[in-house]
């Protein structure tokens, strides 16, 4: 991770990072959504998204990345935990045990007949927690002198 304000000519790394970050982000989102029926899921998707952010941190300095992605990662962890707990609590509304998940077929405008499961919401919580924790660890280590 580079210190802010140091002059280096990393033009090749920075140019390729601009392209490659999008590939990694798209692949991590693919892994996140594919988790129900194929290898993947919230954990590996979150790790891959944070690896894309780490690549940005390597190519640019901490200040620039904070400007590109103004995210408070500790809040992100909290929001992820909240979502994961609320998917469990939400099952009480229907009078079923904690963390009971269900799914159904819906007709979406563009995608057609799609199977939507509430387990994806739990996975979204895991995804946010993994990104939040990984980025908190890396930024905390990177910022200490």
């Amino acid at each position: 991770m580079k210190k802010a304000g140091r002059k280096t000519n990393d033009i090749i790394l920075q140019t390729i990072t601009k392209i490659v970050v999008f590939i990694i982000m798209i692949f991590s989102l693919y892994l996140f959504f594919a988790g129900h029926n194929a290898p993947g899921g919230g954990f590996i998707g979150g790790l891959m998204t944070s690896s894309a952010i780490v690549l940005l941190l390597i190519a640019y300095d901490v200040k620039t990345v904070k400007k590109i992605l103004p995210v408070n990662y500790i809040m992100m962890t909290a929001v992820g935990l909240f979502i994961a707990v609320m998917t469990g609590v939400g099952s009480f509304i229907f009078g079923v045990p904690f963390l009971t998940h269900t799914f159904g077929h819906f007709h979406l405008p563009v995608l057609g007949d799609t199977e939507l499961a509430t387990a994806v919401l739990f996975d979204l919580g895991v995804y946010l927690v993994v990104i939040g924790v990984t980025m908190t660890i890396i930024q905390t280590i990177g910022e200490t002198e």
């Binding site: 090749i12 392209i19 490659v20 590939i23 692949f27 693919y30």
Partner: peptide
Amino acid sequence: TQVLLGIVFVFLTAPVAGHL
């Protein structure tokens, strides 16, 4: 398509890694 994406990814990144 993941394999195609992997080909593009390796083709882009491996030379940059060598350069660095």
